[in-house]
């Protein structure tokens, strides 16, 4: 096959008098509010409570499910709220929700099974409210295994945490800061209007500023 392609290439070049160049393959990504999420790789979204990390995750899931892909959410602490996810555009019938009831190990095992099974557009692991000590105990080999599971596939692996743990296993880190809550009106009848979120999208140690608004 390679020989046939090379022969064809030479013939086209000699007949037309042009030089053919190979176009570099572009990595597929999912466009979200917090920046592009690469497929076939691990992305960590980290930040404190009320930093917009869950809203960023929902925008990843919404983008994938809108493209008729199936997604999975491994919910270590049972924090997922389907109502707000649906409001953010996540198509719930295409989302596999696994409630791990506080067991980080189960969440990682289930993610590994799903990654090896294939076919999911996004596999998200929500460790944001898991005890920091439990997430810290996850061996680096487990993160490597997860990364290997999605390599060369169309699956984007997204991990939600308070702080980054996967080190070199993650291709992209999105670090968010505590969002500024904007309130409107006076009590009674006041309203939490929006979050103004910000942080950095980091790839190859090169940070890029990210800003987005989350509205009610």
């Amino acid at each position: 096959m390679a020989t046939a392609v090379a022969t064809l290439r030479e013939e086209i070049q000699s007949r037309l008098g042009v030089v053919l160049r190979t176009k570099p393959a572009e990595a597929e990504t999912l466009a979200t509010v917090a920046g592009a999420i690469p497929r076939g790789a691990m992305t960590e979204i980290v930040g404190p409570a009320s930093s917009g990390r869950t809203a960023a995750l929902y925008s990843v899931l919404a983008a994938a499910t809108a493209g008729q892909e199936f997604c999975a959410l491994l919910d270590a602490q049972d924090r997922f709220d389907p109502l707000s996810a649906a409001a953010a555009g996540v198509r719930l019938s295409q989302l596999l929700w696994v409630r791990c009831n506080g067991n980080v190990e189960h969440a990682l095992k289930a993610a590994d099974m799903l990654a090896n099974g294939g076919g999911f557009g996004v596999i998200a692991i929500d460790l944001a409210d898991a005890p920091e000590s439990a997430v810290h105990r996850v061996p680096l080999a487990a993160w490597f295994r997860l990364r290997r599971g999605v390599e060369n596939t169309r699956t984007a692996l997204v991990v939600l945490e308070r702080s980054a743990h996967a080190r070199s296993c993650s291709a992209v880190k999105i670090e968010l800061k505590r969002a500024r809550a904007v309130w409107r009106g006076l009590m009674p009848g006041g309203l939490l209007e929006r979050f103004e979120c910000g942080g950095h999208w980091i790839h190859n140690h090169q940070p890029r500023a990210v800003e987005f608004r989350v509205i009610r």
């Binding site: 960023a56 707000s84 555009g89 198509r91 944001a128 608004r213 509205i215």
Partner: peptide, 13 residues
């Protein structure tokens, strides 16, 4: 479904 927009996400206890 409604058009995609970043909306408040509740983390339910």
């Amino acid at each position: 479904y409604p058009p995609l927009r970043p909306a408040f996400a509740l983390r339910r206890f």
